[in-house]
Design a protein around this nucleic acid. Structure first.
Lengths: 348, 348
DNA sequence: TTTAGCACTCCATCGCTTCGAGTGCTAACG
DNA sequence: CGTTAGCACTCGAAGCGATGGAGTGCTAAA
């Protein structure tokens, strides 16, 4: 059954009030904020129906109403007025992002901090949403006969380097050969295919060479995987400012998710620039009474990352959505392959 | 004035009780725990004197006594029985540290997490306490005519790599020359001297070469500095379990220090394997009612790092000290240059 | 359908009392 | 003189009831 316009308006008022006060909203307050003047009694009737329909709930009989997750959902989907950022704010966001950092990881880490401090909620960022991370180029720098530094240049201007201790003694002269093997067969492919490629080479190489190569591939695979899954969280302490997390238990549980249980944070892979998960819509138990808003941004042509915030279900969705997509857009623009900020400087 | 043995014993009992209960200790409780049986009245007389001398305090007239920072100090310096770790615990610690990680940063970050979860206090770690970090070797990997990847191999098996965009177009052929210049003049010296060295080269080099070189040195300096000051914190949420941080304000303030105000964490540079800062002994305001215990460990021959924990003044010093120095010793052993765990495997 | 009116519910707050842990002091004791 | 028993006293924590107010649901009238 469709809701009448008035019911919707009432629901909207309840949500918006509750978002700011964190206290149940009463009929008088609502009446005062209605456009068409109606009495509180009328509102009460409407409230009773909305409650019955599951959009609102009462903490106890003689209290006002608070939205249920279903109520928030309707609000977010239909009632909320999408906020537009003021020019000033857009500029502020871009100013924060416009950074002298050149490496992707550093840029997005900083973006995460900025999001968190802008919105006053804990934030999380990833740098590989959809597409596979691939290696653009390998380099091996010999250190001594046992060790070398493996350097991988990844998609999205990322550089990963690792000290690798070889299983066999290696003549430093051999490293260039190994490196060119790596570059010839293992670049521009997703990590998952590396195993197959390696197999194809089994017979074409002398055994020791093959052993070394497979060790290097294993190391590369590890590094890629680590990079792939990396979720950076910041600003967990913002939780403590919120009345719903006064209870140390709750705050602790949520902070555990943010620091050790990052795999529970939603990382939607399906399309859409923005995803909102309200309360129980979250799969992870620990997030059942929080909401998560997460936006995706493009990294160059064929990769994408995520920026998300975690907050109470009564979070200020309109504001969060507007600012978060401001950040996502800013990042997308910043990471566009062509108009490189530094080159731009040059062109002038 | 020296304290009588009995006063010391009483002080010790008060501290140890308070550490575990976080509640003021009364005369009866103390009497029950005294070796030589005395009445609670006697204890009360002693307590009154100890209070007057500033070792104890009363939250209000009809409460028991709690130690003052001065009291804790005496306890730590004289009364505390140094705990020895059981063999089992030592092994546990070493098991946690015995890691397949090869890079220093990763090792100490993991050590930090382990310390925090062992002790249930927030922990922090650094990797460069005393000696300057120096570059062992530079490498430049050309990417295109504007970009290269700078790889620095640092003291302590550390590898730092960065994408660097050059200010001038560079013929890829030039990179080896630049790299050998770097290696010839800028390795094995502290970052502070790099500037001087650079100056010495002013006239010996063609201007564009010099420009590129100085850019590379600047980048290296930045990277070193960043590395130098890096303090990694973990486990801030452990605070929420402590009754003294039930107050969200306090917890928030301290968490701010742990995440954004790391420069306020004590990083003692003077000798001594362990340092204990009790309450107001901390310089930073935010730490005035917390205690910090910090131990140092050696990284190879001539560098050292720190492991520290932050907790309430009533922290369990004996336990923290024992475990923390267990970790510090473990790290020192792990990072000894010679008996390299991997090579050991080989030798058998 | 809306509204005024009213009885009712329930929480938050405040003040009051009670309880007990703990103190400080005094006087007696060895 | 140090130690101890005894006792009056203090003060916070916890429990209790009364009060007030915000908010409800229901009824009856417009």
């Amino acid at each position: 059954m469709e809701l009448t316009d008035r019911k919707k308006q009432i629901l909207k008022i309840v949500v918006e009030n509750y978002i700011h006060t964190a206290e149940p909203v009463g009929s008088k307050t609502i009446a005062a904020r209605m456009e068409r003047r109606v009495s509180s009694a009328t509102i009460r009737n409407e409230l009773a129906e909305l409650t019955e329909m599951g959009y609102l709930e009462q903490p106890h009989t003689s209290a006002g109403r608070a939205p249920t997750p279903k109520g928030y959902r309707l609000y977010v989907d239909e009632l909320m007025e999408r906020q537009r950022l003021s020019v000033r704010e857009t500029e502020e966001i871009n100013a924060v992002l416009r950074t002298r950092l050149k490496e992707l990881d550093a840029i997005i880490a900083q973006a995460g901090r900025a999001v968190s401090s802008f919105l006053n909620y804990p934030a999380y960022v990833t740098a590989t949403g959809k597409k596979q991370l691939i290696v653009r180029r390998f380099d091996l720098i010999p250190v001594d006969e046992w060790d070398c530094i493996g350097v991988m240049m990844l998609s999205g201007n990322r550089v990963k380097s690792h000290l690798i201790r070889m299983q066999l003694k290696v003549d430093p002269e051999q490293f260039p050969a190994l490196a060119s093997l790596l570059n010839a067969h293992f670049t521009e492919i997703p990590a998952a295919e590396m195993g197959e490629r390696l197999m194809e080479l089994t017979e074409q190489l002398p055994a020791p060479m093959f052993l070394l190569l497979s060790q290097l591939i294993a190391a590369a695979g590890d590094a890629l995987e680590e990079q792939q899954q990396k979720i950076i969280t910041t600003g967990a302490r913002a939780l403590l400012k919120l009345p719903e997390f006064r209870d140390a238990e709750k705050a602790h549980a949520l902070m555990s998710v943010l620091s050790d249980g990052k795999e529970n944070l939603p990382v939607p892979s399906d399309a859409g620039p923005m995803k909102i998960l309200i309360g129980p819509e979250n799969v992870a138990d620990a997030l059942k009474d929080t909401s998560v808003v997460v936006a995706s941004y493009d990294i160059g042509e064929d990769m994408r990352g995520l920026v998300g915030v975690v907050g109470p279900t009564r979070m200020d969705y309109a504001s969060v959505i507007a600012r978060l997509s401001g950040f996502a857009d800013g990042l997308t623009r910043l990471l566009e392959p062509h108009p490189d900020p530094l080159k731009e400087d040059k062109d002038k």
